[in-house]
Computed example of a mutant assay.
Amino acid sequence: MRRRGDLEAEIMDRLWRWGRPGTVREIVDDINLTRPVAYTTVMTVADILHRKGMLRREKAGRAWLYEARRSREENTASLMQEALGSTEDRQAALQRFVEHMPPEDVSALAAALRAAGHMPADARPPEGGR
């Protein structure tokens, strides 16, 4: 049995992949390609996502068109900030996080720090990525 959070993630994933607004019918039809889901269930969860501020909606005839309020990357960054904010020792949490990063993610993090001006342009990540 799937949790409601799983369906929220499925709805968001489709709208992000499509890069355009979608109706509940379109979302249901797409999910039903891999598993059964009721129209009313998707409609309820889309409304919940709208009330949470994750989706915006506008009327298109008799249907609502739903669209993600922020990009997948913005959403991920917000979740990471929220998780980091839940610890009393941010440095320790960041260290544990980085210790388990694969080398390509370490390089991506270094590039992001340079791009944001938080790391000198000539600084390179440590060899081996860790």
Rank of each mutant, 00 (worst) to 15 (best):
R3T: 11
D6L: 14
D6C: 09
A9E: 13
A9W: 07
A9N: 09
I11T: 01
R14S: 07
R14Q: 14
L15F: 02
R17Q: 11
W18V: 04
W18N: 04
R20Q: 14
R20V: 12
P21N: 02
P21S: 10
V24M: 07
V28G: 08
D29P: 03
D29G: 05
D30P: 00
N32W: 02
A38R: 12
A38K: 13
Y39N: 02
T40Q: 11
T40R: 11
T41R: 15
V42R: 01
V42A: 02
M43F: 13
M43W: 13
T44W: 09
V45R: 04
V45Y: 01
G53N: 08
G53R: 05
M54L: 08
M54D: 05
R56N: 10
R56K: 12
E58N: 10
K59T: 08
G61I: 01
A63L: 00
W64T: 00
W64N: 10
L65V: 02
E67G: 02
E67K: 04
E67R: 04
R70S: 10
S71C: 06
E74Q: 08
E74M: 05
N75M: 02
A77F: 08
L79D: 05
M80L: 13
E82M: 11
E82Q: 10
A83N: 00
G85R: 05
S86I: 05
T87N: 05
R90W: 14
R90K: 15
Q91V: 15
A93K: 04
A93E: 07
A93M: 11
R96H: 11
F97H: 09
V98A: 11
E99P: 00
S107W: 04
S107L: 07
S107D: 07
L109Q: 02
L109A: 05
A111Q: 11
A112F: 12
A112W: 08
L113H: 02
A115G: 14
A115K: 15
A115C: 11
G117F: 08
H118F: 15
H118P: 00
M119I: 06
P120S: 11
D122P: 06
R124S: 14
R124K: 15
P125S: 09
P125L: 04
P125D: 10
P126I: 10
E127L: 12
G129S: 04
G129C: 03
R130H: 15
